[in-house]
Design a protein around this nucleic acid. Structure first.
Length: 426
RNA sequence: GGAGAGAUGGCAGAGUGGUCGAAUGCGGCAGACUCGAAAUCUGUUGUACCGCUUGCGGUACCGGGGGUUCGAAUCCCUCUCUCUCCGCCA
């Protein structure tokens, strides 16, 4: 949620900055109208409540002295009727304002390039050299199926389109990747590993993003207020929901390996081949809860942590700053890491690292006890470090050999009984 | 699944219809003592919103929602969660 004080102070300015996101901009006029009505109603209700409280107190005192309270009780009754109606109206209006505000996306940071689509994302840097292949390059589907390790038909039989099954050394490579990522982040980057529920309540989902807006992207458990998590960000960020964290405990740094479930509503026909865009995939997520003054330096650091995985795996990539129109709902600034996929002859997103500033913290009342002893909202950040499925894709494509075998990246051999190559089954 | 007990401020824990936003202890902050620290003593210390504005006033909040009442932390209904016992299960 954006800061309502800021919105009150400068509705036009906020609307202007939000408009750079492209989607239906903030209706500043509607907000002003809400505010005027709310103020008027609230003042009236609170005045009525004040008189009610005074009368109740007077009755108590009069009774204590043994005086007649009938006239006072009658006054109270009258007030009660009046209050009931206006109280309800106020509650409805406040709910409306809440709903309105919770659907407003975060304000982009000033360093974010203004643009309408991914075309206008800004490239920051590139790492690694693209391998030259002296044989026709296959995509990950061909390589994976050739190794007997990826099986989309069985995935489809079990659960439908956009599901995959893995077998043998490829399944193990997939597991090795997750282990490797967890180890690097816990050993070298100071994150604490956490294990979490793979379902969250509606309230938790609305804490990290807008449930009202993005319900369709999630899988919901029938007849329960539970959603399958689309990323570990959902459960892990909610660790600090309704908490006041001691200043000395900041920053909190968590790493979490989890499956992610996405309905991929609205992406019909997009990336239908292979395991680029599945309903279920694994991801290792890194997440930090920090002091507000530190969040932008933390964003650089956290992005570096995700990059370290790609560097260890010697996978070439580039870093993009998402433009205002391409950023997620809750983010103030996002870097995407895009890995080189020779099978697609393109860079593809493999990690997304965002600073949400106080946007999520405000939605879930996550605070720290500030320097002056007052609770203040924390800043939250997270990034994929990395999407495991897509990392496997990148390895299948970048490490493939002419004979259809796959070289195991150096960094993973310790997790694979030291084997250097996965061969085609004979 | 069955039976019972409980949920109060940062934490612990009193309070069973009327000056209760809530005793007390711990913790935090400020001060005194000290070369400094500890101990001790004194004071102070919830959050959100609204209105005039460096202060004051008002309102709401005792797990969530609803009800009874002139008045609810306190009574009633309901939901959620926690604990204990039994059953079942990895």
């Amino acid at each position: 949620m954006i800061d309502i004080q800021l919105l009150r102070k400068d509705p036009e300015g906020v609307a202007r900055r939000l408009a750079t996101r492209g989607e239906g901009a903030l209706d500043a006029v509607l907000f002003q109208r809400y505010e005027t009505a709310r103020k008027e109603l609230q003042t009236a209700v609170e005045q009525a409540q004040a008189s009610r409280n005074r009368i109740a107190k007077d009755i108590g005192m009069a009774k204590g002295k043994g005086q007649d309270v009938a006239p006072l009780v009658e006054q109270g009754e009258k007030l009660k009727n009046l209050l009931e109606r206006s109280d309800q109206k106020l509650a409805e209006l406040q709910q409306e304002i809440q709903d309105f505000l919770r659907k407003v996306p975060n304000i982009p940071h000033e360093s974010v390039p203004v643009g309408a689509s991914s075309e206008e994302n800004r490239e920051e840097r590139r790492w690694g050299t693209l391998r030259k292949f002296d044989f026709p390059v296959k995509d990950h589907v061909e390589v994976g199926e050739g190794l007997g390790g990826l099986d989309f038909a069985t995935g489809a039989k079990i659960a439908g389109a956009r599901f995959v099954t893995m077998r043998g050394p490829v399944a193990r490579l997939h597991r090795a990747l997750a282990q490797f990522m967890l180890d690097v982040h816990t050993r070298e980057h100071g994150y604490t590993e956490v294990y979490v529920p793979y379902m969250v309540s509606g309230a938790c989902a609305d804490g990290v993003s807008s449930l009202a807006k993005f319900k369709g992207d999630l899988f919901k458990i029938e007849d329960r207020d539970l959603y399958l998590i689309p990323t570990a960000e959902y459960p892990v960020t909610n660790f600090v929901r309704d908490e006041i964290v001691e200043l000395s405990n900041l920053p909190l740094k968590f790493v979490c390996h989890s499956p992610c479930f996405r309905s991929e509503a609205g992406s019909a026909g997009k990336d239908t081949r292979g395991m680029i865009r599945n309903h279920q995939f694994d991801k290792v997520e890194i997440l930090q809860v920090v002091h507000p003054s530190k969040s932008y330096e933390t964003l650089e650091e956290l992005t570096g942590h995700a990059e370290a995985i790609l560097q260890n795996l010697e996978l070439p990539y580039r870093v993009m700053t998402l433009c205002t129109g391409d950023m997620g709902f809750s983010s103030a600034k996002t870097y995407d890491l895009e890995v080189w996929l020779p099978g697609q002859d393109a860079y593809r997103e493999i990690s997304s690292c965002s600073n949400f500033e106080a946007f999520q913290a405000r939605r879930m009342q996550a605070r720290y006890r500030g320097e002056k002893g007052k609770p203040e909202l924390v800043h939250t950040l997270n990034g994929s470090g990395l999407a495991v499925g897509r990392t496997l894709v990148a390895i299948l494509e970048n490490y493939q050999n002419a004979d259809g075998s796959l070289t195991v990246p150096n960094a993973l051999r310790g997790y694979m009984d030291g084997i250097e190559r996965i061969d085609r089954p004979t």
